[in-house]
Computed example of a mutant assay.
Amino acid sequence: MSSNPKQEEKPKIGITIGDVNGIGPEVIIKALRDNRILNFITPVIYGSTKTLSYYRKALHLEDFNYSQAKDAGQFHSKKINVVNCWDEMVEINAGAITPEAGRASFNALEKATEDLKAGLIDAIVTAPINKHNIQSDKFKFAGHTEYFTQKFDAKDSLMFLTSENLRIGVATGHIPVKDISGNITKELLTRKLDIMEQSLVRDFGIKKPKIAVLGLNPHAGEEGLLGKEDKEIILPVVKEFKHRGSLIFGPFPADGFFGKGDFRKFDGILAMYHDQGLIPFKTLAFESGVNFTAGLPAIRTSPDHGTAYDIAGKDEASATSMREAIYLARDIYKNRHEQLVEE
């Protein structure tokens, strides 16, 4: 057993500010206000001290203190660090969709990703972006998941929604509903299940995970009566994983699976498409849910909510999901490094 000095260090968790007109700055401030969090991580906010100062004053959260990081990678371990990611003046207009806010959110994301790749931070937590105003020649992605998958040259990744007792991944992510069936292939499902199984072991410390696979069609196809994908594509993949010794079961009809509470019997669940997985997940774990991008060499988590423009700047946003995203990033970092030590 070899020693690993990084294991004893508090991980440096980068937190991107997201859309400055959304609730990102608010939930970041609220999540980090309790100084006890500094016992577990070194927070590094990527955004702007001016933006944080604006929301600190507007929301009457003057007890939130931070330190500007002036040198790359030189972060104070007992303070909240802020990396300024733009020099120009960005007007704050809470609840509004503006091009300036889109550019600012991209600048924060790009700088944090550069530092993550350079090893200056150990993980990244992304506050919500607006998927429209962030689009540019440098950002042509459907969301964070696709961005990080390309940035880290991963062959594939998995959008993995997690909470304390529920973990749901989606086989197809941000694609139109009309394209879902054509994208469900044996190769895709094999990749996604491989990523989920490995992540449950590596990132969540579950030595022999039990995974459920949901069907694509109503009643999982009714033996081909309501669609052939479940019988001809999904079931053979499940059988192949069982043959190699994995605890993977299905395909299950999604309605009954959640209606009867069968989800409680599994460590992970693979849904076939975005809403099939996210509707039950957000119903059951909206306040505490976290979006984790599994399958990457880097660690990226995010609160499981959007910009929430309707409540931005009103001191109504809950920081629970952001706080959970920060702690999950820390836990995954710890699990990965404990396994490195054991190896």
Rank of each mutant, 00 (worst) to 15 (best):
A212Y: 04
T145A: 03
L226N: 00
G119K: 07
F241Q: 02
T126Q: 07
I195D: 00
A118M: 11
N35P: 09
E100L: 08
N183F: 06
T126D: 08
H76R: 14
T16N: 05
T172W: 11
I175L: 13
K260F: 15
V90P: 06
Q339F: 11
F249Q: 02
K30S: 09
T162V: 15
T16L: 12
G169T: 09
T283K: 01
D194L: 12
P11F: 05
P303R: 06
D63P: 02
A112L: 03
L38S: 03
G205T: 10
K265V: 13
A312T: 13
N93I: 13
T162E: 02
S199A: 12
K70L: 15
I248G: 05
R336H: 08
K228H: 07
R103W: 05
I37K: 07
K334A: 09
R323Q: 11
N291P: 11
H243M: 10
R330Y: 05
A118P: 04
I23P: 04
D87P: 08
R167C: 03
V237C: 04
H274W: 15
P297D: 15
S246T: 06
T301P: 08
T113G: 04
K208C: 08
S67Y: 05
Q74I: 13
I15K: 08
I269G: 00
T301H: 04
L38N: 00
V27I: 14
P11W: 00
A319V: 14
S77E: 15
E223Q: 03
A329R: 05
F281I: 06
H76K: 14
I28Y: 00
H132V: 15
H274D: 07
F64Q: 10
Y54G: 03
T16K: 09
E88N: 13
R103V: 09
L214I: 07
N291G: 05
V237D: 01
K57C: 10
N39W: 06
D267V: 15
N4E: 14
A112V: 03
G261F: 07
R36K: 14
K314L: 07
N133I: 12
P218N: 01
H337I: 15
L193D: 01
V83P: 06
L235Q: 07
T185E: 05
G224A: 10
T145S: 05
V44Y: 01
A31V: 12
G173Y: 08
R202S: 10
R336C: 12
A118K: 11
G313N: 11
W86G: 00
K231C: 08
D63E: 09
D122Q: 03
L59H: 02
N165D: 04
S3W: 13
G102M: 12
G173C: 13
H144E: 02
I28Q: 00
G256K: 03
V238N: 01
K138G: 03
R336T: 08
K192V: 12
L189Y: 01
I211R: 02
S318L: 10
P43E: 01
H305C: 14
T113N: 02
A317M: 07
T98G: 02
L120K: 11
Q276Y: 01
L38T: 08
T126G: 05
P99N: 07
I184H: 08
I45T: 05
R264N: 13
W86K: 00
P280C: 07
M89A: 14
G259A: 13
R330N: 06
N81V: 14
H76M: 10
S53E: 07
G173R: 02
A254M: 12
R330I: 10
A72W: 11
A123G: 08
I17R: 01
H76I: 13
T293Q: 14
A220M: 09
